[in-house]
Amino acid sequence: MAISGVSTRTLAQSLRTALVRSQNEMNNAQKEATTGRLADPGLKLGSLTSQTVTLNREMERLNNIIDTNALAGSRLSATQNSLKDLSTQAQTFLSTLIAGSSGDATPAVMLASAKSALSSMGSILNASFNGEQIFSGINTDVKPFKGFEAGSDAKTAFDTAFQSYFGFTQTDPGAANISKTDMEGFLASVEPDFLGAGWDANWSNATDATIQSRIALNETASTSVSANIDPVKKLAMAAALTADLYSGNVSEGAREAVNARARALVSEAVAGIANLQASVGVTENRITATSERLKMQADVMELHIQKLEGADPYEASTRVSTLMTQIETSYALTARIQQLSLAKYLS
């Protein structure tokens, strides 16, 4: 009978191979004990792996939409706060205009209120959230409201329109002779500079298009507000007319025409802003309800994935302990075998 020899090198090599295998198994067991998921789903599930891949992909899509919905909801919340401030400013200005029409507010008070309204509009409409302009439509990197300061496009256009219509400037002594009827005619002629094409050219950098967000797999919603809406245009027109013409030399009758037109514009603006606040609120509620529904769907998918890929962390921890013991034993045996030699045997 033939007897095959066994060298210490062969024994050491076999222990080393077993040690590498045990280390790999321990790494997988540690991963399963930590995550509660199979370290290699494909090895365990076989043909069922495609189901987990599909479920994980769909769950990731839902979670991404939930995250973007949170951002959209925060942007709408900031928009809602700004609209509230804009409404408050408009109502304050309207109160001053009404007081002025009855003689309870002086022209100086009305002038100051109009300038305050314009300044507040600039601050509110040029507000940003997360580094994006919330009233710029899709042009979120540019401040939307240009203002009505001296030298601005809007002020220059208005001055040009006034001189073209009357033949002199607002500060010219001849402005004192403008009748109420003449001023009403001018206000009608200059209206397109505020409510028409002049708004985009001189007042606003915003786009009419607003941000459209996918709030569900098959549902989108407008999640921003543009400064190019009628309530903003009307409030700006009323404030600009009052701020400019109450500081010039126009007659009392002309100022009455300005006051009447401004009151009508601001009243419409207040109502329009209120309707817009309601619309934004509806969108906020839609996003909240949709996110809750998506979260429930994602939770159901998570349960299915856990059922397929789930691993018992306690059992995995036990395997880690067992494998650790085996590895330590292998290290000890390998060290002893490496110490064996013919010289030591013969001695």
Rank of each mutant, 00 (worst) to 15 (best):
T223N: 07
V190L: 04
N249A: 04
E191V: 01
I215R: 01
N177C: 04
G167K: 12
F186N: 02
I211S: 02
G185T: 12
S224H: 13
A254L: 03
V190N: 02
A239P: 03
D182R: 10
S247G: 11
N202L: 08
S247C: 05
V225D: 06
S226L: 08
I229A: 00
A188W: 11
P231T: 08
L187M: 09
L195F: 15
L241N: 10
T223A: 05
N249H: 07
Y165A: 08
Q170D: 09
A209D: 05
S251I: 06
Q212M: 06
K233A: 02
E219I: 08
V225R: 08
G253C: 07
E191F: 13
F194I: 02
E252T: 15
L245V: 04
E191N: 15
K234P: 15
W199T: 01
F186V: 01
S251P: 14
N205T: 07
S204Y: 13
S247N: 12
G196A: 00
F168A: 04
A206D: 03
E252R: 10
L187N: 08
Y246N: 11
N228T: 07
I211K: 15
A239M: 00
I229E: 12
V232G: 07
S222L: 13
P231I: 12
S222M: 01
D208L: 15
P231L: 12
T207H: 10
A216E: 05
D172K: 03
K234E: 14
K233R: 14
Y246F: 14
W203K: 09
N249L: 04
K234D: 12
W199D: 01
E184P: 02
A239Q: 11
Y165F: 15
M183W: 05
N249V: 00
L245F: 14
D200Y: 04
E219Q: 11
G196P: 10
Q170I: 13
E252Y: 09
G174A: 11
T210H: 06
N228K: 15
G198K: 02
V225C: 13
L235A: 03
S189K: 11
T242I: 03
A201K: 14
W203P: 07
A188I: 14
F162H: 08
N228H: 09
A238I: 01
D244V: 01
S247K: 06
F168V: 08
W199L: 07
T169C: 02
N205Y: 13
N249S: 13
T207K: 15
A254R: 02
V225S: 10
S224C: 09
G198D: 06
P173T: 01
M237W: 05
I178G: 07
F166P: 15
D193S: 11
K234G: 07
D200N: 10
I215D: 02
S213M: 04
T210D: 09
S247R: 12
E191K: 12
D200T: 10
G167F: 10
V232P: 06
S213I: 00
E191I: 00
E184A: 07
P173Y: 05
N177Y: 00
D193G: 11
A221V: 02
N205C: 09
E184Y: 04
A201H: 06
N205Q: 13
D182W: 06
N205A: 08
L195I: 11
